[in-house]
Nucleic acid binder design. Sequence first.
DNA 1: TACAATATTATTGTCAACAATTTTTAGGGT
DNA 2: ACCCTAAAAATTGTTGACAATAATATTGTA
Lengths: 248, 248
Amino acid sequence: MSLIVDNIRGEAAPTEALLPAATGSTRADSVFDSLRTAIVQGELAPGSKINEPQLSKLYGISRGPLREAIRRLEGCKLVEIKANVGARVIELDIQKAIEIYEIREALEGLACGLAAERASTADCVQLRALLTRHEAQIESEDGKRYYQKEGDLDFHYLIVSLSGNTRLFNLLCDELYHLLRLYRVQTSSQPSRPAQAFKEHHRIVDAIEERDAMLAELLMRRHIASAKATLLAQLDHDSELNPIGVGS
Amino acid sequence: MSLIVDNIRGEAAPTEALLPAATGSTRADSVFDSLRTAIVQGELAPGSKINEPQLSKLYGISRGPLREAIRRLEGCKLVEIKANVGARVIELDIQKAIEIYEIREALEGLACGLAAERASTADCVQLRALLTRHEAQIESEDGKRYYQKEGDLDFHYLIVSLSGNTRLFNLLCDELYHLLRLYRVQTSSQPSRPAQAFKEHHRIVDAIEERDAMLAELLMRRHIASAKATLLAQLDHDSELNPIGVGS
DNA sequence: TACAATATTATTGTCAACAATTTTTAGGGT
DNA sequence: ACCCTAAAAATTGTTGACAATAATATTGTA
């Protein structure tokens, strides 16, 4: 068991090499991107320490821009910094995931309602096309659940962008979605009930096509609430096993 | 007229002296706080450039920690950074303010509903006491609208904290509320309809006391929506004057 | 005067070294 | 063996200097 714990909480380092530093972008920006994907994809284990000398050597940069990148990660809530101690990759337990889903439910409900008010006919066509495309993908290569995960996010991505609220877009797509990805990786959770989800997606597009903002918001909130319910059930199940957080 | 413009957009510097660097906190943290309040209170004019040598001299620190503070400000959406060019204080036009209010409506609605589900009886008493206290303050020193502004935020602050969702609390209190303050300073907007607002506040507390989550959410959303409506009316009014953004 | 190209200045990005703090290790006492 | 204390190592916080880029001023020309 301690093997697993060590694996999860160890001081894992990302396998990435240094990037060629794309023009128009500073080193701090590139290393921020690299670190973010490293964290979100689980290469930097949750709870593990961010070692500045080690990472600066790995990426071939000095600690100055690295620290700026870390400060940006802090802004995205992907690491937590304690003064004079350093940064650690965030750990998402079920409790925190539920908090995120509560927020997501409210914000994506808003986005979906706005999308229904503002989406053009062409937008609706695009939205429906995206759904059918993903559906076909799933049916053909049934084994690879991977696409379904990303496909699901594509759908939500598009709707949020149709809301026309750029701040909302940034909030969801630049912050919350990364946290969701991280949680999925940490718990290696499969997307449950794909068939049901697709049905719900189509109902949501129906509502948007009909410019029914209230219904669109309601359906999206319900759609996300059902995912949240799965988490809640898991939380209740776990707390039944360990009544007051008693470890082994 | 150019006088006003210069005053608003000039490279104003905050009048703050360097802080004694509270223990347990790094210099980057203190200067982050200083800069944030300087921006929110309008001492650093919206749109003005963040000059690193100038600010580092003013605060008596080097550019390293200053840049980390700036990166944190970027995370709070208080400044915008362009690579190789630098950071500028954000400018909030009505359009952006409306986006914020849309988000705030959804999130505070959520917070209020959760508060209704989770608040203890003592919490409700505290909430009501806060209201009556502010009411008395307003009636006594009617002239000072200042208290009403902050008092209004106090009320919302408390409700958000009662939601029990810490991420929601951080999102609203550490990010959105600062932006609201900034917008109020930028437009020197007075809180409209204080009497009506107090009535709505009491109805909201009523709903929370009765553990009526749906009603509490509805009332809070409506409460914020009416503030948003004022902005929208202003936007329509302005666009009537300058049909397609024609300056003087 | 107006305009374009160039030179100058200022500012940002980056680095390597030093200071301050924390963590780890070693040692001694009970 | 345990725990407390002190030295050593490692890591974070900070600084000043240098390189790269952008903004500004200057000059030349039509």
